[in-house]
Design a protein around this nucleic acid. Structure first.
Lengths: 134, 134
DNA sequence: CCTAACCCTAACGTTAACGTAAATCAATTT
DNA sequence: AAATTGATTTACGTTAACGTTAGGGTTAGG
């Protein structure tokens, strides 16, 4: 659908289907102030910006962030910080998040290596079985 | 400490302190069959293998895996799968986990880019403030 | 007019991963 | 001997992130 400004809009059901979650979840994110869609009467109307937000929420979740932390990141991103103090606090925040992401990169690298090992042992075993079997 | 075989061992408190978690958590992991330390009387005695396990648990957690999934990975790793069916199931599992990790790598990359943006905007703003201020 | 497919609010239920409190025991320390 | 320290079990409490149920409104189609 499109609204009066000819922008694309979505119903809650459409978004739910697209991202494979339930409407309940989307409403819950709103309750937690991670979304704030327009309304026509009672019905929620999501614009493209809302859709992007939702995508970001789900990405954050995949990375193990809590909804509170994700909200935190949003505020950081939206913030029109104007005092030096605020700005410096923000730089600290970004650095903190960066550290977490670096740690995750390390973790992923190590886990991948272990999966390689498991897989190799597995393939060797399989080859062995096939030899004996034939 | 060392046990009768001259291997290094740890108390629950030592491990808790080392990894900055509570003994309660460690006991809980045991309850969920992620650990199974020796005992002397009632007291738990952790060997180095247990310590490595614990480290792996925490790494899994940082990556957003549930304890059940981590247990799953352990079984996969420990498994002496001997039938072709088991081995193939295992290969499927590793591929599945790999897909998740790849997704996370993507997610991290994107989030890092956004942090770059936030930081850049922030530094610009700061520079601007300093100009006007001087 | 009915019902099917949407939407809504309100509120209680559920699961994972521990936290916390109570009561007890063993080894040191004072 | 008394107190401190660190271990144990048992069991109820807690938080996050929804699931689920109940009750109700509105539009399109048959």
């Amino acid at each position: 659908m499109t609204n009066q400004n000819n922008e694309v809009t979505y119903s809650i059901g459409e978004l739910a289907k697209e991202f494979d979650i339930t409407p309940r979840s989307i409403r819950f994110y709103e309750e937690q102030h991670l979304l704030s869609p327009e309304r026509t009467g009672q019905t929620r109307i999501y614009c493209n910006k809302d859709r992007v937000r939702l995508k970001l929420i789900l990405r954050g979740k995949r990375l193990g962030f809590s909804l509170a932390e994700i909200k935190n990141l949003f505020e950081l991103y939206d913030s029109n910080a104007n005092s030096m103090l605020q700005l410096e606090a923000m730089l600290q925040m970004t650095e903190q998040k960066r550290a977490i992401l670096r740690q995750q990169l390390d973790d992923i690298q190590m886990l991948m290596n272990e999966l390689d090992e498991v897989e190799k042992r597995c393939r060797d075993e399989l080859a062995d079985l096939q030899k004996r079997g034939s």
